[in-house]
């Protein structure tokens, strides 16, 4: 269950994010950011895979794209993906709700 406040907008990411789908993944997040929700919650419960390309997109958005007052929260990534987030330092930078 996702707790949603008035400040949060939830977007569900389904399937696999790799070099073939990375642009689609990035565009989807940027589209939500352009709507200027303060907090975008990425529901990762149905994201089966993400590679370094996708992780790079997340890191770039976090460091270079988010406006003041905006943030992205990662919601319930699968265990296999949690490992990648840990190895690459994403979990140090993002709020992850489990």
């Amino acid at each position: 269950m996702v707790d949603i406040s008035n400040q949060e907008h939830v977007s569900k990411i389904k399937g696999e994010v790799d070099i073939a789908t990375a642009k689609q993944f990035e565009d989807a997040i940027l589209e939500q950011l352009e709507k200027e929700y303060p907090i975008i919650v990425l529901d990762l419960t149905e994201m089966d895979y993400i590679d370094s390309t996708g992780i790079g997109i997340l890191m770039n958005i976090k460091k270079n794209v988010l406006k003041d007052g905006q943030d992205i929260v990662l919601y319930r990534p699968k265990r296999s993906i949690q490992k990648l987030l840990q190895l690459t330092g994403v979990e140090q930078v993002f709020t992850i709700k489990k």
Binding site: D51, S52, T53, I55, G56, M59, N60, K63, N64, L84, L87, T88, G89, Q92, V93
Partner: peptide, 19 residues
């Protein structure tokens, strides 16, 4: 080696070696 928590990309080879 990538700078964990700071670097935006370039994790491919690092992940291969780690896993």
């Amino acid at each position: 080696e990538p700078i964990i928590g700071e670097q935006v990309g370039g994790f491919g080879l690092f992940l291969i070696k780690s896993l």
